[in-house]
Structure formats: structure tokens, C-alpha cells
């Protein structure tokens, strides 16, 4: 293991240990924060009793819906915009300004339009994720080396064959970055919306526990969501590394 990795593990463990002692000794009051060990045991009990199942399924389904839509729409939009320079020129500044708009402010509007169900939060998740996918698709297509396209032409490959066998593999790392960001963003959009106002889901349960001063449940749920997102991000990161290694980067 590298020195930096070792140090990182030590620092993180030290931080958790510090919080644990501060909570156990009462330096941090119980109604503010419970010790990390209790968060974990409380989460284990919730999972074991199956109490999270309904909300977990609901949140994950919403994330999947938002993510799928964002990846498909983002990719198609990126490809189309890339093909038409004039549209590209008009859209580009807007794309770079996209993430400066607080997307959550549209949430109240969607609630009024579609009612308090899962549709508004899926739309917010989608809106958060779709631009990342579009931007990275454009990036990927921009970076296909001209020599590859020339080679394809030398071999008299058709449009479809060039697209699938040359452009797509060459742009893959960027598309992957887009997907990775889209995963993170759709989680943020969906859980955030649930948390602000919704009728169910993990984010909703956190808010519910908070309003009932139920710290054990609240911290367990927060731990669960953070853990879930970390695991998803880390597996995507590992997969990306594998892909890059196969291409001979590092």
C-alpha cells in the first residue's frame, strides 16, 4: 500500500474515533449526534428488520429512472448537437452555465404541475444528470483523433460501422465519465427532492426522523445513503480504472 493511502486510512479512522469519544464522553450532546458505533448498530437493526425495504426500493427505482433517461437523452443530445455546428455554437455557452442554475428551485413548479408523487423527483434527478452526460458526450466526440476517422475512410467503412467500431470506442472514456457523474447527480437530485418535500423514500424518512427527534433512525439512514453512494462511486471508479488499464493508460 502507498504511504498516502495508509495515512488516509489512519486519518479517517482517527476522525471517527475522535467523534466516537466526543459523543461517548458527552462533549457532543446526544440530541445533537449519537456515537458512530450506535449509528452502525442502529442501521444494522433497521436493515435486519427489513424496515428500509419499501423506501429503499422507491428511491432506487426513481434514481434508476432518472439515470436511464439522463444517459439516453444526454447521449443522443450530445451526438445530435455535435453533428450540427451551428446548434453547437448556440448551445455551448448555455451548457457551461447549466450547473450555475440551482435546479432544485424548479422542484416546487414540478410538484404543482405533476402532484406530490415520484414524477417531480425523477425529473429533478434527470435535469441534474442530463447535462453532465451531454457535456461529456460532446467532449468525447471532440477528442476522437482525426487519424482514426481517416483510417476508417481508407478502409471504406460505412457511417454505422465507423460510429460503432471507431468513434464509440474512442469516445468511451469520456462517455464513462459522463455516466459516473450522472449517477452522482441523479442521486443528489432524487434524494434532495425527497428530503425537501415528498411522500416517501429514503430522503423523506431522514426528514421524518429529524422532525420526530428520532436521532437513532436519522443517523442510521444518513449513514446508509452515504455508504450506498460511496460504494456505487467506488465501484464505478474501479471499473473505470480497469477500462483505462486495458487501453494502456498507466
Amino acid at each position: 500500500m502507498k504511504l498516502a493511502t495508509k495515512l488516509r486510512v489512519a486519518v479517517l479512522m482517527g476522525a471517527v474515533g475522535l467523534v466516537e469519544t466526543l459523543c461517548q464522553t458527552g462533549a457532543i450532546a446526544r440530541f445533537t449526534m449519537i456515537p458512530p458505533s450506535e449509528m452502525a448498530s442502529s442501521l444494522w437493526r433497521l436493515l435486519y428488520a427489513g424496515k428500509l425495504q419499501t423506501d429503499m426500493t422507491r428511491t432506487l427505482l426513481a434514481v434508476c429512472a432518472a439515470l436511464t433517461a439522463a444517459i439516453v437523452v444526454g447521449f443522443v443530445a450530445g451526438a445530435v448537437v455535435h453533428a450540427i455546428p451551428r446548434v453547437r455554437r448556440t448551445i455551448d455557452p448555455l451548457l457551461s452555465a447549466y450547473y450555475s442554475v440551482p435546479v432544485f428551485v424548479f422542484y416546487p413548479m414540478f410538484i404543482v404541475l405533476f402532484g406530490l408523487n415520484d414524477i417531480p423527483k425523477i425529473i429533478i434527478g434527470f435535469l441534474y444528470a442530463v447535462a453532465a452526460m451531454t457535456i461529456n458526450t460532446l467532449n468525447g466526440l471532440d477528442r476522437v483523433a482525426p487519424v482514426l476517422l481517416k483510417t476508417a475512410r481508407v478502409f471504406r467503412m460505412g457511417r454505422a460501422a465507423t460510429g460503432f467500431r471507431v468513434v464509440l470506442p474512442a469516445a468511451a472514456p469520456y462517455l464513462f465519465t459522463g455516466v459516473k457523474l450522472a449517477v452522482a447527480y441523479s442521486f443528489i437530485g432524487v434524494v434532495g427532492s425527497e428530503f425537501i418535500l415528498s411522500s416517501g423514500g429514503l430522503g423523506y424518512q431522514i426528514g421524518f426522523a429529524y422532525h420526530n427527534f428520532d436521532n437513532r433512525t436519522m443517523y442510521a439512514l444518513i449513514l446508509f445513503i452515504l455508504g450506498l453512494v460511496m460504494i456505487v462511486n467506488m465501484s464505478l471508479h474501479a471499473w473505470e480504472k480497469m477500462l483505462m488499464a486495458r487501453r494502456g493508460y498507466q
Binding site: 488516509r8 452522482a184 434524494v191 453512494v229
Partner: peptide
């Protein structure tokens, strides 16, 4: 760096109740 990047990509909204309690 990896810690910061990881924290950057989590839905920070979920941390809001903790902030409120503090």
C-alpha cells in the same frame, strides 16, 4: 484529494439535519 472528491459527489442534502442539530 480522494476524500474531498468523495465528499464532493455525495448528496450533501442528507447532511442537512446534522447541520441543523449543530
Amino acid at each position: 484529494e480522494p476524500v474531498l472528491v468523495a465528499v464532493y459527489s455525495i448528496p450533501k442534502v442528507t447532511l442537512y439535519p446534522i447541520i441543523l442539530l449543530f
